[in-house]
Design a protein around this nucleic acid. Structure first.
Lengths: 202, 202
DNA sequence: GGGTTTTCGGAGAGTCACTGTCAGAACGCG
DNA sequence: CGCGTTCTGACAGTGACTCTCCGAAAACCC
């Protein structure tokens, strides 16, 4: 099913991202060129653009972008979107893949390993932050119709609430980052978005 | 008080923006270079960058960015931020400066004149949209501490709610734009953000 | 398994947004 | 009018990003 091409494409993308992260961590985002990343990953600069579109795209690869509408619909409960969001975060933030104790030294720290390694740049590099905001916006556009299907709000309100959810998540993520990334992200989302729950309470 | 320099700077900025809008409307955002804008406005490209930073900055000149914290504090009521936002929009959207009937033909249309002329590009040019999102984000960062001072939420929640407000406004603005821009923006904000009011209701 | 089609990565050239630096000019002030 | 400050324009440079073309390898068909 997964052809050779598709398979190689995935591994290539992962290695490109890892090499890029290595270079970014070493010398800073701005001081690394696409050409250097391409050389380090043993691909052409063209491929980096084909895969990720922009330099920021190397860090902001939105999982929601590739997620089908059906899958998204399963995850999100229109009656309790905040709860659904927390659940998604909690599931994605599994101990194995999460940032906690990735090096076995008993300490969790932002940017050491796991899928959250890249998140650090969301809040330190302005251009990356902007790209992350754009990703949140795209997610909101896809979530809005699902909220509308819930029934209690119209299309315009669903659009507003979808943005409130995704960017509220972003804000919670920043608080998590500012805190040093030790406690689970899901906790920050739960606490930070608590006031928003009132919107959907009877 | 306003020295000659400051005065000339302001008029220069306005003419640059107007020339830029003219060119954008005529040939599209992507097809116009900074150099062409500079030539049309009879300034150097350096000045364009000095004034606006980026090409998108020509369209996304955020009023909140230049607004002092004190002024912002006066406008925003922590007990009813949604109402404050509606009030600010209503005041800014005065009939004279607004998009309504600017040509005296009895029709209001998006992008014909007034301060809302540039808003059209927020929702048609991806890079401009991204810049607008970044401006909303900056506004949220400034608003958050004011919400916290209200007393009912902590810092993390204030950050979430500030983002919910600013990006909710953005969403309402898009609905307004999609509708053709005939009805007042304040109406869209009022209706779109209505569910968010529940957050602050007793 | 051989021939055809389709797809995809690499190479190269080109555009343009954006960043510095620097010298000169205009302004503000005494 | 003279002096220090501030702003402007000119210039060169960097690098992100786009576009096009070509060869190779995978996918498809028999």
């Amino acid at each position: 099913m997964a052809g050779l091409r598709e398979q190689w494409r995935r591994t290539a993308m992962r290695t490109i991202q890892e090499r890029a992260l290595d270079l970014f961590d070493e010398r800073g985002f701005g001081a690394v060129t696409i050409e250097e990343i391409a050389t380090a990953a043993e691909v052409s600069p063209s491929s980096v653009y084909r895969y990720f579109g922009t330099k920021e795209g190397l860090l902001v690869a939105d999982e929601f972008d590739t997620m089908s509408a059906a899958t998204l619909g399963e995850l999100l409960d229109p009656a309790d979107p905040v709860g659904s969001l927390v659940e998604v975060v909690r599931r994605y933030e599994s101990p194995k893949d999460g940032p906690s104790d990735a090096q076995g030294d008993g300490r969790a720290e932002v940017g050491t390993a796991g899928p959250w390694r890249r998140v650090r740049y969301f809040f330190t590099e302005p251009s990356v932050r902007s790209a992350a905001l754009a990703a949140m916006d795209r997610a909101a556009v896809r979530i809005a119709p699902l909220l509308e299907a819930g029934g209690t709000v119209d299309a315009a309100q669903a659009r507003v609430l979808a943005h409130a959810l995704t960017f509220g998540y972003f804000a919670a993520l920043e608080t998590w980052h500012d805190d040093g990334g030790t406690r689970p992200i899901a906790d920050y989302v739960t606490e930070g978005l608590a006031p928003l729950r009132r919107v959907w309470s009877v």
